[in-house]
Design a protein around this nucleic acid. Sequence first.
DNA 1: ACCTGAACACCGTTCAAGT
DNA 2: ACCTGAACACCGTTCAAGT
Lengths: 188, 188
Amino acid sequence: MSTPSSRADARSNRARIVEAARDAIAAAAPDEELRLNAVAQKAGVGQGTLYRHFPTRADLLVEVYRHDVDDLVALAPVLLETEPPLKALAHWFDRVANYARVKRGVFAALEASVWKDLSAHSLGPIGDALTLLLDAGRATGDIRPDADAHDVIVLIAFLTRLDESEWDERARHLLGIVLDGLRVRVAD
Amino acid sequence: MSTPSSRADARSNRARIVEAARDAIAAAAPDEELRLNAVAQKAGVGQGTLYRHFPTRADLLVEVYRHDVDDLVALAPVLLETEPPLKALAHWFDRVANYARVKRGVFAALEASVWKDLSAHSLGPIGDALTLLLDAGRATGDIRPDADAHDVIVLIAFLTRLDESEWDERARHLLGIVLDGLRVRVAD
DNA sequence: ACCTGAACACCGTTCAAGT
DNA sequence: ACCTGAACACCGTTCAAGT
């Protein structure tokens, strides 16, 4: 996916924009919107240059968190090698929660890219990772067959909204409830 | 809560603002933001007048949907009179979903007012209705004891985000998963 | 090819002047 | 007391002119 851009300055600009955006997100208040003009200024480029490289806000956010998302995606198969599917899913949820806590923007970007992908009838790499986990759980009969990756993404999107102050007491607890909802119910 | 405003024109202005906002929301695209200046213009009042009556955007939205929210709140005890708690909760979810589908703004306002209330360590009337339903379910041993109204509000907030096109296939299905997560698990 | 930054459009919010 | 609407502030977005 490396865009071998024809000019060195273009590549350097692109890198500086991403860096400036990362800094701006880290410095900003929890749910403060990323101000694109400020990013351009910090990066030392014109606004038009930012738009040339990242036509939409989501494009920029996705790039900023590309590595984090990649890590998350790569984790799914690794977990499945050493744990039963249900436990793997639980651990994956934990990891998602961690990312989302440290930098709220990760999940915002994840949501943005997923929504974009939804129109294209694909769930993106995160959807693939989830499908892997859900399929494994279905195979062992632990996870209900009528829940897909799309469902789970929508259900755990609340992580974006949780307030910093209530994170510790609520994030894992709520993910636990969702996990229980995804499990196959034994007859009652 | 009736503010017996000292001037007739003030009351009439307030009413016209609410009416204009309702119309604007009904006419606007699904997730289009409500433009306050446009509301003021439609209502035939100055922008300052709108701000005098509704200092924040949430204040206005809450007022627009006051009756809908009241209905939702009043429904909870009625359901509990004729149905077992778990079924009552399921039906209440259905009703919430209906409101949210027809006018997406209902739920946005509900969320806004709840977030406001959260700071004040209260969950508002919606939280009270939910507490009623959850308590009843706990008493019969159907609903897990470690889930409160706050949890449920956060969990079903996804209704705000669902796209019109996927509503029918997804809203009830996802609410069902949440409901299962809220049930007490029989030993497995 | 790519970049710059002035300029435009759009909204939210305030406040001095009116009634 | 309450209202008006011009004015300000702020951002996103475009595009003619530069290199």
